[in-house]
């Protein structure tokens, strides 16, 4: 991306308040989310949820959803935390916060589809991280959730340019980053990186946002970047993409990201990707329901 474009995005991020309002809640949340599950301070999370009435309401609504198989009513935030468990609540909470980040009218791509992809990628990253013994599955979850933040930037701050890129992707069944590059001269990876810096996100998350479509260029945390790259691709191949058909064939074993991971985790050569794919299909429907319930129809 040239300097003029970078300056333009940075200026728009500074000017528009639609995006920066949320990090007030997001920053402490991100801090807690990086902790191992057994070290998370439940009262802090309860406090955080309670301080925003509408988020608390959404959490309670979801805690009472049949999706989680609750048999008795939950009517307090504390009850929701205990009932759902910190892990599940964290997923719900972060989704709630992120989906409210941008007013619905500002989106060019369907926000429900976008968050289904992001949440799907997050869950898959954590699952895959556990399968291959990656040391920080929660970090992988967070990286998966935030990897496409640049799409938000492009959708909200550069609507006319992004509209033509999205139309090209949809009509030609192209991956969105290829269409962006062709129509805009840069991708959501570059614009996402600018937002990540603006929000002071951790360098590993920044590296994922910047390089999840060109993993071989990732100098920082290439293993995490590779992990997110593969899970992003698998989501797009299994019905959790951007809501359109990508006409492509993927041999995961030929992906540069797979080579990077195999170098770090040699046992991946024996990994049953077919079974992992079938297992992933299990929670595709659950993710769709979860995200849809966050958005008022």
């Amino acid at each position: 991306m040239n300097k003029a474009k970078t300056d333009l995005i940075q200026a728009r991020i500074r000017e528009i308040d639609a995006i920066p309002t949320v990090p007030a809640i997001l920053r402490p949340l991100l801090h807690y989310l990086e902790q191992p599950e057994d070290q998370i301070e439940v009262p802090k999370i309860v406090e955080l949820v309670s301080c925003d009435g509408s988020i608390a309401a959404q959490c309670l609504h979801m805690a009472n959803s049949p999706l989680f198989g609750r048999s008795r009513a939950v009517d307090t935030v504390r009850g929701a935390v205990i009932s759902l468990g910190v892990g599940r609540l964290r997923d719900i909470l972060l989704s709630c916060v992120l989906v409210r980040m941008v007013p619905k009218a500002k989106w060019l791509i369907d926000p429900v589809v976008f968050w289904q992809h992001s949440l799907g990628c997050a869950l898959l990253c954590r699952q895959f991280a556990r399968k291959i013994n990656y040391h920080a599955p929660e970090k992988a979850y967070l990286a998966g959730l935030l990897h496409d933040l640049g799409e938000v930037v492009n959708s909200v701050l550069l609507p006319s340019e992004f509209r033509s890129a999205a139309e090209k992707a949809f009509s030609q069944s192209l991956p969105i980053h290829e269409a962006e590059l062709s129509a805009m001269g840069f991708t959501h990876c570059e614009s996402g990186e600018i937002l990540a810096r603006h929000w002071n996100l951790a360098p590993d998350i920044g590296s994922v946002i910047r390089h999840h479509h060109d993993v071989q260029q990732a100098k920082l945390h290439p293993v995490l970047v590779a992990l997110v790259n593969l899970c992003d691709l698998l989501c797009r191949m299994r019905g959790l993409g951007y809501g359109y058909y990508e006409s492509r064939e993927v041999d995961f074993l030929e992906e540069p990201a797979w080579w990077i991971l195999t170098k770090e985790y040699p046992h991946l050569e024996q990994f049953d990707l077919a079974r992992f794919t079938f297992e992933m299909d299990e929670y595709t429907t659950q993710i769709r329901d979860l995200v849809s319930s966050v958005f008022p129809s």
């Binding site: 192209l174 698998l234 797009r236 191949m237 299994r238 019905g239 993409g241 058909y245 990508e246 006409s247 492509r248 064939e249 993927v250 041999d251 995961f252 074993l253 030929e254 992906e255 540069p256 990707l273 077919a274 794919t277």
Partner: peptide, 25 residues
């Protein structure tokens, strides 16, 4: 045979082929 993914489906191809999978076929 090697597993290949399409959107929503899988199939198998012969390993002799280099798929160039990141790009469009």
């Amino acid at each position: 045979f090697r597993l290949v993914h399409f959107a929503g489906a899988t199939a198998y191809s012969k390993p002799s082929r280099t798929s160039g999978s990141s790009g469009l076929l």
